[in-house]
Design a protein around this nucleic acid. Structure first.
Length: 430
RNA sequence: GGAGAGGUGACCGAGUGGUUGAAGGUGCCGCUCUCGAAAAGCGGUGUGCCGGUAACGGUACCAAGGGUUCGAAUCCCUUCCUCUCCGCCA
């Protein structure tokens, strides 16, 4: 949720930047509703003040007939005004919540993802003759069974089996090792010239579900396209660990000395993927259910951008260590997403498909989530202000696809990246 | 799932209809005392919203939402959570 004060101060600027992100918001109406709302609030408070005065005047005694009559009158007036305010709120809050976060000035302006900018490229496309798709290799190896999964759970579910499962667990282990090691983090910070502490990430196994109320506060509830609802329960399945990590400190005031709070959560993510029929149906690139290791951090406003860059640096480091050729993409205004002020993707090269595909995303969210979540920081000087959140992928299952396609051998085996071997019993290929 | 007891400020803990944003204690901050520290004494110490350059004023908040009342932390209803016992269970 955007700061209403920002909208009051610069309605035109907000309108323009929202449009850059593809949101046509009726800012005029929002400003008008805001004024109306404040007027109503002020009227109500005047009456309440009068009522409080009346109550105080009774001094604990039985009030007179006259006082009771006056009290009743005030109550009715307040009630009427409160109803009018509730009416205004019905329009006001959804409209305010529909305003997207403002992109930073350096975010490239663009109308589609075609206008994303390649910021950096690492490595080179491997030289492979007639590379196979990951599903061809995985099915031949008995690592992937989609037919039986469809029988059990339907389309876009899979059974992953055998060595691929071992490889997946190696990936989690490796990711956790990097994120919990202050020396490795320090190296990444130095190499990228960043100004952040090397405080390690705390591993978290979070709940995979959250209540409606909580989900709404995160601003990430996307009922129709993404989120599954549990029948008979007021619960939704998370579509990323971020959904249950970011609201952890809902309605709390954090102490500045405890920041940054860095979490790395592992969870199974569930996505409805409505509106993607026929897209990426082969293999396990786009599933209703997948596993993910996700970074989340809470910082002060003045350190959050560095924290975001730090997360991107970690992502690059992880992909470099796996030896996977990839591009770092600065997403344009249309592609960064509603809650983001800036966004970076990592797209890995998939030789079997002859294209780059997204494996990582890093969201710079500023205080857009913490405002509705009321997650605040008490600064060292005693000032209370909104915290900032950042989230970013550490690993999903998609890098497995990249490993299979990039490191395939003519014999149909897959070379295990060196950094994963310690977690694979030292095996060099599978 | 069944039966019962509860949810009050950073923490402990009073308060069961009338200046109660809330006694008392702990913690924290400042001052006094001290060479310094401790102890002791004194003072201060919640958050949101609205108005105001500010000082400050108003209003709301005692798990959440609704209701009763001239007036609610206190009474009623719903939901959530915690604890105890029983049952079930990886």
């Amino acid at each position: 949720m955007l700061d209403i004060q920002l909208i009051r101060d610069d309605p035109e600027g907000v309108k323009t930047k929202a449009l850059q992100k593809g949101y046509d918001i009726d800012i005029t109406k929002l400003v008008q509703l805001d004024e109306q709302r404040r007027q109503q609030l002020s009227d109500i408070e005047k009456l309440r003040a009068e009522r409080n005065e009346l109550t105080a005047a009774t001094k604990g005694q039985k009030p007179s007939e006259e006082q009771i009559a006056r009290g009743k009158d005030l109550r009715n007036q307040v009630q009427q005004l409160e109803e009018a305010l509730a009416q205004t709120d019905q329009d006001y809050w959804p409209l305010l919540k529909s305003v997207p976060n403002m992109p930073l000035p350096e975010v490239p302006v663009g109308a589609t993802e075609e206008e994303n900018v390649v910021a950096r490229t690492w490595g080179q496309k491997p030289e492979l003759t007639n590379p196979k798709n990951h599903w061809e290799i995985a099915e031949a190896k008995g690592w992937l069974d989609k037919e039986r999964a469809a029988k059990i759970a339907g389309n876009r579910f899979v059974y992953l089996k055998g060595d691929l499962v071992l490889l997946e667990f190696a990936l989690w282990q490796y990711g956790l090792n990097v994120l919990t090691n202050p020396d490795t983090l320090q190296k990444i910070i130095q190499e990228n010239g960043l100004q952040v502490p090397n405080k390690p990430f705390t591993p978290v196994l979070p709940p995979a579900v959250a209540r409606t109320e909580v989900f709404e506060a995160t601003g990430r509830l996307n009922k129709l396209e993404q989120t599954y609802k549990l029948e008979d329960e007021d619960l939704w399945l998370n579509a990323s660990a971020e959904h249950t990590l970011s609201p952890m400190y809902l309605n709390e005031i954090l102490e500045e000395k405890d920041l940054p709070i860095r979490l790395v959560g592992y969870t199974t993510a569930f996505r409805r993927e409505a509106g993607t029929y026929g897209k990426d149906t082969e293999g396990f690139l786009r599933l209703h259910q997948f596993n993910k290791l996700e970074m989340e951090s809470f910082t002060t406003a003045d350190t959050s951008l560095q924290e975001h860059l730090f997360m991107v640096a970690i992502q690059e480091y992880l992909m470099q260590q796996l030896g996977l050729h990839h591009q770092v993409i600065e997403k344009c205004t249309a592609d960064i997403g509603r809650p983001n002020a800036k966004g970076v993707d990592i797209n890995v090269w998939l030789p079997g498909q002859g294209q780059y595909r997204e494996t990582h995303t890093a969201d710079y969210i500023t205080d857009f989530q913490t405002r509705p979540m009321k997650t605040r920081v008490r600064r060292l000087n005693g000032q209370v202000e909104l915290a900032h959140t950042n989230d970013a992928t550490a690993f999903s299952e998609r890098p497995l696809i990249a490993i299979i396609e990039n490191f395939q051998t003519p014999q149909g085996d897959v070379i295990v990246p060196e950094v994963l071997r310690p977690f694979m019993g030292g095996r060099e290929k599978i």
